[in-house]
């Protein structure tokens, strides 16, 4: 794939994309962790073509925690798969850590929604967590240290020898998060990670994300359909419209840190924000 200049259509200048930018360098703010540059994607062609996302442009700076929300079927997962390099967008490009995605980017880990399918049932918990680093150049003790620390970070010490199917849903998703952590990613993508667990487990997992965000220097992008969650966890909320999805609003979330399941959710600023996001989503991307 050639690193030619992204298709900057004439007459529609992107913010921050200098036209004199040398070939092969990322558009947008220098040092951005993620740059999404004029990304559109259409599945299939002809009559059955589905235009999932249309001309998305945004940036994520390092250590930001950004949530992506939108009406169901809004192409949130399509966007995430594009960021993960699992899907090449029909148009535009994604740049991760200054490099254009032509495949899966370095230093990126993904947490999938369906833990029961993303964990490998024939591997014990510790070997599942070691999966991304099993083929690496690290020595055995180094790998073990990474696995132990990651399991400790998600509160699963002592479960190393168990198998995923012996654990509850919430614990399985913790294993999947530990697996992502063992990879020591710079960028962590989460695709509706808590959609399949019960409400109480969900709160525990949300606080886990907050704690690992503080503990590890990571940029986190996660897709959710839970409006409260999108505000509770993030520094920024990106609201997408109905498909073909465009960016409706990029909302900054400035809530008191550390966040807390009770006090943060009582905060009038929180209540105001969640109401705003909810209105945007319910209107399907029309201005409110």
């Amino acid at each position: 794939m050639t690193d030619s200049l992204p298709t900057t259509s004439a007459g529609a200048p992107t913010q921050g994309a200098a036209p004199t930018r040398p070939a092969g360098t990322a558009p947008g703010t220098p040092g951005a962790a993620v740059v999404v540059d004029h990304v559109s994607h259409t599945y299939g062609r002809g009559d059955t073509a589905h235009h999932a996302i249309h001309d998305l442009n945004f940036e994520v700076m390092p250590k930001e925690c950004v949530s992506i929300v939108g009406p169901s079927g809004a192409g949130k997962t399509t966007l995430l798969r594009t960021l993960a390099g699992l899907l090449q967008p029909s148009e535009g490009a994604v740049w991760v850590n200054g490099k254009k995605n032509t495949g899966v980017p370095d230093g990126m880990a993904m947490v999938f929604q369906d833990y029961s399918r993303s964990l490998l049932p024939w591997l014990s918990v510790e070997r599942n967590v070691a999966f991304p680093i099993a083929g690496s150049s690290l020595s055995k003790p180094e790998r073990k240290a990474l696995v132990d620390e990651s399991l400790e970070a998600v509160g699963l010490k002592g479960f190393e020898k168990r198998y995923p199917w012996q654990l509850s849903g919430g614990m399985q998703q913790r294993v999947a998060i530990a697996r992502a952590l063992a990879y020591r990613p710079k960028l962590m993508l989460m695709d509706e990670p808590f959609a399949s667990v019960d409400a109480q487990t969900r709160e525990g997992l949300e606080d886990l994300v907050l704690s690992i965000r503080d503990r590890y220097d990571m940029t986190i992008l996660f897709v959710t359909h839970d409006i409260d969650e999108s505000v509770y966890l993030a520094n920024r909320v990106l609201v997408l419209s109905r498909p073909p999805a465009t960016l409706v609003e990029d909302i900054r979330v400035e809530l008191a840190e550390p966040r807390d399941q009770i006090t943060t959710r009582e905060d009038p600023a929180f209540i105001h924000l969640r109401g705003h996001v909810a209105r945007l989503i319910h209107s399907g991307g029309e201005p409110v």
Binding site: L156, G158, G170, D207, D228, Q261, R265, I271
Partner: peptide, 20 residues
């Protein structure tokens, strides 16, 4: 919503007993 159940910081899911 605002009045959430107390969320312990520790894992909310307890260890499952060994499979019978």
């Amino acid at each position: 919503m605002a009045i959430a159940t107390p969320a312990p910081p520790a894992p909310t899911t307890g260890p499952t007993p060994p499979r019978a």
